[in-house]
Simulated assay, not measured.
Amino acid sequence: MDLPQALTQARSAQEAGDVTKAAELLEQAARAHPGAKEPWLQQAQMHLEARRYGQAIVAAQEVLQRDVGDITAHSIMAVAGLRASALALGHLRQGNAVQGSTREEAQTLTQTIREAIGETVLVAPEPVQAPPARPAGPVRRREAHSASASARPLRPVEPPVARPATTGSRNPFSALQ
């Protein structure tokens, strides 16, 4: 089996919506060319797009066994891992179960991610709307008090939660390069 031809056929099958056939073609190509990273990379991208994060990570690891410096495979592993973590933490948060060492570890991981990408905030907070303008004229003592109260934030600002980003077939970390 010719590797470029197999990859093209798999891509065509995937674009036509036949993901099962695409996966079979990529598995055949991987068996026929055990040293090639391309079938595994295409599988990793396909799994990531299908939100099968565990399988995406496994396929990306196969790529890295063949090419330890493949940036796309590292990106897929990072994005798939973050998405899986975000889903799990979202479920835990709904049940108010993120406490103790789990919470501390999540905070440590968040700080590590912030440092790695050079950002202080992972997801930009929603903009706070300014209070409505008051009519001009003399301000009475009671109005001055309520105006200063409305200038204060209505609720404490919580640290942003990392949400899974939507990525198509493009490199999820291309903005960082």
Results as ranks from 00 to 15, higher is better:
residue 30 A to Y: 01
residue 119 E to I: 09
residue 43 Q to M: 15
residue 148 S to I: 07
residue 97 A to H: 05
residue 47 H to K: 08
residue 115 E to N: 12
residue 50 A to F: 03
residue 25 L to K: 01
residue 163 R to H: 13
residue 39 P to A: 04
residue 174 S to L: 07
residue 71 I to S: 05
residue 130 A to D: 15
residue 167 T to W: 04
residue 42 Q to T: 12
residue 19 V to W: 00
residue 125 P to T: 02
residue 155 R to G: 10
residue 86 A to D: 11
residue 117 I to Q: 04
residue 161 V to M: 06
residue 162 A to Y: 13
residue 51 R to K: 15
residue 96 N to A: 14
residue 76 I to E: 00
residue 151 A to P: 03
residue 87 L to F: 05
residue 154 L to C: 03
residue 119 E to N: 11
residue 91 H to P: 03
residue 44 A to H: 02
residue 11 R to K: 15
residue 166 T to N: 09
residue 63 V to G: 01
residue 117 I to L: 13
residue 124 A to M: 12
residue 34 P to H: 12
residue 81 G to A: 04
residue 61 Q to I: 02
residue 65 Q to R: 09
residue 109 L to Q: 07
residue 70 D to M: 07
residue 28 Q to K: 14
residue 39 P to D: 11
residue 170 R to H: 10
residue 77 M to I: 15
residue 75 S to P: 02
residue 175 A to S: 10
residue 80 A to H: 01
residue 44 A to K: 00
residue 8 T to A: 13
residue 52 R to W: 02
residue 78 A to D: 10
residue 146 S to F: 04
residue 125 P to L: 06
residue 100 G to W: 07
residue 42 Q to M: 09
residue 125 P to A: 04
residue 35 G to W: 07
residue 55 Q to A: 05
residue 81 G to P: 01
residue 88 A to G: 09
residue 92 L to P: 10
residue 112 T to Q: 05
residue 1 M to G: 13
residue 121 V to K: 08
residue 72 T to C: 04
residue 145 H to I: 15
residue 160 P to C: 13
residue 27 E to L: 14
residue 137 G to N: 10
residue 34 P to L: 15
residue 76 I to D: 00
residue 87 L to S: 11
residue 140 R to N: 15
residue 38 E to I: 06
residue 78 A to E: 14
residue 175 A to W: 10
residue 84 A to Q: 07
residue 121 V to F: 04
residue 115 E to C: 02
residue 23 A to N: 05
residue 70 D to S: 03
residue 161 V to Q: 09
residue 84 A to Y: 01
residue 4 P to F: 09
residue 173 F to M: 12
residue 35 G to M: 12
residue 80 A to P: 04
residue 170 R to W: 10
residue 41 L to Y: 03
residue 90 G to W: 00
residue 135 P to G: 14
residue 170 R to K: 06
residue 65 Q to Y: 01
residue 106 A to Q: 09
residue 142 R to K: 13
residue 87 L to P: 04
residue 92 L to K: 13
residue 51 R to E: 15
residue 118 G to T: 12
residue 46 M to L: 15
residue 172 P to S: 04
residue 76 I to W: 00
residue 14 Q to W: 00
residue 166 T to S: 06
residue 141 R to Q: 12
residue 23 A to Q: 09
residue 96 N to V: 08
residue 101 S to Q: 15
residue 124 A to W: 03
residue 57 I to M: 08
residue 46 M to R: 10
residue 149 A to V: 11
residue 21 K to S: 09
residue 66 R to T: 05
residue 84 A to K: 02
residue 111 Q to H: 04
residue 153 P to C: 10
residue 130 A to N: 13
residue 85 S to H: 00
residue 137 G to H: 06
residue 138 P to R: 12
residue 69 G to N: 12
residue 48 L to N: 01
residue 55 Q to M: 03
residue 25 L to V: 02
residue 171 N to I: 08
residue 3 L to N: 05
residue 132 P to V: 03
residue 25 L to C: 03
residue 13 A to W: 00
residue 94 Q to K: 06
residue 137 G to M: 06
residue 47 H to A: 07
residue 129 Q to A: 14
residue 68 V to D: 05
residue 146 S to V: 13
residue 38 E to Q: 15
residue 7 L to Q: 07
residue 61 Q to L: 02
residue 112 T to L: 06
residue 144 A to K: 14
residue 5 Q to Y: 07
residue 163 R to Y: 08
residue 52 R to G: 08
residue 177 Q to S: 10
residue 6 A to S: 14
residue 91 H to W: 02
residue 122 L to N: 06
residue 92 L to N: 03
residue 17 G to A: 02
residue 37 K to Y: 09
residue 96 N to Y: 07
residue 43 Q to P: 03
